[in-house]
Amino acid sequence: MTQRDPKLLIQPGPQLRQQMTTPVVMRDVWYALAPATLAGVWFFGMGALLVLLTCIAAAVLTEWCFSPEEKRRYFLGDGSAILTGWLLGLTLPPALPLWMAFIGGAVAIGMGKTIWGGMGGNLFNPALVGRAFLLATFPIAMTTWTSPGDFFTIPASVFAMPLMHGVVDTVTQASPLGLMKFEHTSTGFIDLLFGNTSGSLGETSGLLLILGGLYLWWRRDLDWRIPVGILATAMAFSLVLFMMDSGKYPGPIFTALSGGMMLGAIFMATDPVTSPLTPRGTWIFAVGIGLLVVLIRVFGGFPEGMMYAILLMNATTPLIDRYTQPRVFGRGLDTK
């Protein structure tokens, strides 16, 4: 080596890498979620924003606490903790007391992700683990839906303190799914599409969620098979039921647009960590969710089944992966 040579690096190939990195993927999901989130905040007011921010803060703080000091920068740098908190916030009732939201965020990261070994190791979707925990712990607060109201009025329940019985002063209103389940009343499709209904923060505006999904699909961050599979299965299944008894069962369009269907199908079930790797497995996973959602909604005890449907199918992911390995090139051929 002579003096004029620059210092040469020795590294194994391939030397070229595509430019997409995990933090970029996570950031893409932020952008995709932003329109629906803004719409939700617009409909439900500042209180909803506070709930959302509390979830994110709790998630990030938990991630920070549980990550080893030398790796903290990377654990937080990939942006996944923010996303988990964000997704959790979108599934919560807009007037949930903040301390509950905080616990939800902490549980989502702590029990949903960290104890599995951190990013990539978890079996269940962390945001939904947090939500399931909250639903089991605070069933009343978690099923108190407010109707969209004034932007600057913050419901008093948001600032309720732990172990105190907060005065519920909000205008409560059953969610479209509750109306359907217990009173067999349908809600207008236009309201469902644009999100002007009661429900959780993020599950109201179907249209903006679809736009976000299309953006992710265009950026190739999203496995299109999962939302397509879930929606197609759920709609087909509910169409069959609807044709059997249209007075009792919801129609396919209502099924697709109501509740957490869009949010779940586009942003929750597609979480790569907890969905199958193989293309065939992905279809099985999506069809399973679609069937379970309608089953739970129509025949189960809860008006909404998206969360449990996804969590149940999450549990089957390793099994699905194992049995849906694609045929290796040049193997399993008919040999002469």
Binding site: T22, M119, L277
Partner: peptide
């Protein structure tokens, strides 16, 4: 061309598959 991104945990995105 040769800069290596920070290595993160596998998120099972399936791009390699």
């Amino acid at each position: 061309e040769t800069g290596r991104p920070q290595e993160y945990n596998c998120i099972r995105c399936g791009r390699c598959v």
